[in-house]
């Protein structure tokens, strides 16, 4: 069972205590965007076999949204961090680089 640590209340929460919320750090497109941007925003999601960033909610706990970095191939969890950010924290990116050299996900990668 997947276990994620809620960055707010510090509880190591089991999957049944959490609600998955899909891809993290989405850029929202609305009025004024073109068809391709809107299509991409609505339907195209990152689907990597490897490092992935997601949103989760501690639904049966403190109720707050947070982010998690996870490997979709091994279910290894690299870490979690609060929702009030548009990119993964530098320390977490370094931790992922140590375990998955050469990783990249959307505009984020080992170098950036």
């Amino acid at each position: 069972m997947l276990i994620l640590t809620c960055p707010y209340c510090g509880v190591a929460a089991e999957e049944t205590e959490l609600a998955p919320g899909g891809e993290a750090h989405l850029t929202r497109f609305g009025p004024g965007s073109d068809d391709a941007e809107f299509e991409s925003y609505l339907f195209y999601r990152e689907n990597p076999k490897g490092v992935h960033f997601e949103r989760w909610r501690h639904a049966n706990g403190c109720g707050k949204w947070f982010h998690a970095a996870r490997c979709t191939n091994t279910l290894e969890v690299f870490g979690t961090y609060p929702a009030q950010t548009t990119e993964p924290p530098a320390a977490l990116r370094e931790a992922i680089s140590a375990k998955r050299p050469g990783w990249s996900w959307r505009s984020f990668s080992e170098e950036t």
């Binding site: 997947l2 999957e15 998955p20 979709t72 191939n73 279910l75």
Partner: peptide, 10 residues
């Protein structure tokens, strides 16, 4: 409810 490639159940 979340992406994975593990070919095993929960």
């Amino acid at each position: 409810g979340y992406n994975n490639y593990t070919q095993r159940g929960s």
